[in-house]
Design a protein around this nucleic acid. Structure first.
Lengths: 156, 156
DNA sequence: GATGAAATGCTGTAAGG
DNA sequence: CCTTACAGCATTTCATC
């Protein structure tokens, strides 16, 4: 696994390909080929290169959780008793499906998580019965996202 | 157990299809069809239904920004002078490509954003020269993510 | 790196139970 | 809501430039 762009050179054509596919992962390769004036086979070769470099890590269908009734998103800052308990806490957080992200952060808290709940009651239950129950968790601070106004990937 | 929301019923087969495609958006429909013992046409019909319901909102290629040299992720809480300036601030934040998410939050701050930078110096520049320069931004609090330990979508 | 051609396999619609 | 059938394309490999 590479951590730098050492021998990875992405040119304008790679960028165009990536921009198309980051928008719509099922866009036909030949359609992209026609749009940028290159053969389909060349795109396949470039995609393999990008995959091998570790830049391309996969693709996802994106769903809108609102339609399933999940309308309450929140960030929760978690204070741990000691930094030592981080790996244990993360293992426990992994078991909670409502936890979508978990960051080991500098600053006030040890951990910052993003959660998605059906409503405020569900969020309250999550806090009291699941997160606060994890050993080592001493205190939490919750920030409800009233509206996610930007959500995107890095621009290429 | 059925999930309902108004006129959207997703059953076990829908869930299986979604689970495959949320993992790999380019997985051939016919391969999924063979795996779950249903015809390809039936999957197309279900996908159209899911799309029409708004649950399926698209698909994305996922890239690993580390390979491009982006190694510093941070959350920044932003205090605004007045709640009124939120739409303006969001429009300005949209113009900054390093800003990946923007939430209108309850709690301490008016806005919580997620940013991705090459390194700490880049982050410092972003804070001083771009974010603090936005009219209405009075103060910020930055939390660097030393490690993103969980990153996933809602489980279906 | 790129290309065209060819084999293989997929997509999406149609028609029908 | 499912199926089969099919025509039209897309994907991927390979020899070649």
């Amino acid at each position: 696994m590479k951590s730098t762009n050492g021998n990875l050179h992405i040119d304008g054509i790679d960028k165009k390909i990536l921009r198309y596919l980051m928008e719509d992962a099922r866009k036909p390769i030949l359609e992209i080929a026609r749009n940028i004036g290159i053969s389909g086979a060349a795109i396949h070769q470039r995609l393999r290169k990008l995959e091998k470099s570790g830049l391309l890590t996969g693709s996802k269908f994106v769903i809108n959780p609102r339609v399933l009734g999940y309308t309450t998103m929140a960030y929760i800052g978690i204070f741990l008793d000691k930094a030592m308990s981080n790996p244990y806490a993360v293992r426990e957080l992994e078991k909670i499906p409502e936890v979508l992200e978990c960051h080991y952060t500098t600053g006030n808290w040890s951990i910052l998580i993003k959660v998605l709940c059906r409503d405020n009651e569900h969020l309250m239950h999550l806090l009291n019965k699941k997160i606060q129950q994890i050993e080592g968790v001493s205190r939490t601070e919750t920030f409800i996202s009233l509206d996610q106004q930007i959500d995107r990937q890095i621009s290429i």
